[in-house]
């Protein structure tokens, strides 16, 4: 039992991070119908920027909470402006181009970000020295530390805040209008360019926070780390129903928990035939199964073809 609880906790923390990154994918997809392949790399930049800032600020003698806050702020600013510029340079000119054209620029931008990061931080793995050793508590026989609790709570706050923002603010309403029909929204006086830019800003800022969490939690960063994280988060977004913010949250948490439980129990369930080596495809199998039953994802709405 304690093992099961521990696996749930592991999955919950991992899933919170996935969910935050998935938000970035799903928001952009909801509005533009575009898979923003560069989003994982934006998260990577968030992680590396915060790693550098934390070390600098810590070395400057600032107390830990202050340096964490400042580092997070710095990462948010860098990533938000990066997201904004990506949209401006690589996606906006292709607004009326064939559907797959932005996919190529996204891949190009992703390569550009990766190797710019390689120039700045090098290609070695970057270790963040443990500046805090979060105390750990025991819960139903499982270990959970304060950092994990903080990650889950912060992620929940961000996701809740975002959902509130989308449903209750003026900008949020404009976002939803653009999502449903950009042309009509534009006729109604919505500045769709501004809305789209805002979407990228928000998504990237949330990605930056996810990056900060990754670097704090795992203590390791690398210029290529965005790829895997992005792939998992994208899967989570589709699982929940891409385009749906609540879906990204559910998808992320679900994916994290599925991965943990799969690694933990797949061997018993399959009678020793499959082991943890199949963890990564287990997530995809669940995804395919969900899509077979609900082709629009868990929370996605059934909509007409978007061509």
């Amino acid at each position: 039992m304690d093992i099961f609880v521990q696996q749930l906790i592991n999955g919950l923390v991992l899933g919170s991070i996935y969910a935050l990154v998935a938000l970035g994918y799903t928001m952009v997809y909801g509005i533009l119908g575009l898979i923003n392949f560069a989003h994982g790399d934006v998260t990577m930049i968030g992680a590396l920027v915060s790693a550098t800032l934390i070390q600098l600020l810590h070395a400057a003698g600032l107390p830990v909470p202050v340096s964490l806050l400042l580092a997070g702020g710095g990462a948010v600013i860098v990533c938000a402006s990066l997201g904004f510029s990506i949209e401006r340079i690589a996606y906006r000119p292709l607004r009326n181009a064939p559907r797959l054209a932005p996919l190529i620029t996204a891949i190009g931008v992703s390569i550009l970000i990766q190797y710019s990061a390689a120039l700045i931080w090098g290609k070695q793995y970057i270790a963040l020295p443990a500046i805090i050793t979060p105390p750990s508590i025991e819960f139903a026989g499982a270990q959970i530390n304060h950092l994990q609790i903080a990650i889950v709570i912060l992620a929940a706050c961000i996701m809740g805040g975002l959902i509130w923002f989308i449903h209750h603010s003026r900008m949020g309403r404009a976002m939803r209008a653009t999502e449903q029909n950009p042309a009509v929204a534009s006729l109604m006086g919505v500045d769709t360019h501004a809305v789209i830019a805002m979407t990228f800003l928000l998504g990237s800022a949330i990605g930056a926070i996810a990056g900060l969490m990754v670097i704090l939690y795992y203590g390791i960063g690398h210029y290529f780390m965005g790829f895997m994280l992005g792939l998992k988060a994208f899967t989570a977004a589709v699982l929940g129903g891409i385009g749906n913010v609540g879906g990204a949250v559910i998808g992320g948490l679900l994916l994290g928990i599925i991965e943990s439980l799969a690694a933990g129990y797949i061997e018993q369930l399959s009678g020793g035939l499959f082991g943890s080596n199949y963890r990564d495809i287990f997530a995809f199998l669940v995804l395919i199964l969900v899509l077979l039953l609900r082709p629009q994802g868990l929370l996605g709405q059934r909509s007409g073809d978007r061509a």
Partner: peptide, 21 residues
């Protein structure tokens, strides 16, 4: 136990938890 991860992973808690048992 013989568990597997990949050369791109950073989260091993699931397999480690299993091993702990």
């Amino acid at each position: 136990a013989h568990e597997h991860t990949t050369d791109k992973d950073t989260d091993f808690k699931a397999i480690l938890t299993k091993i702990k048992g």
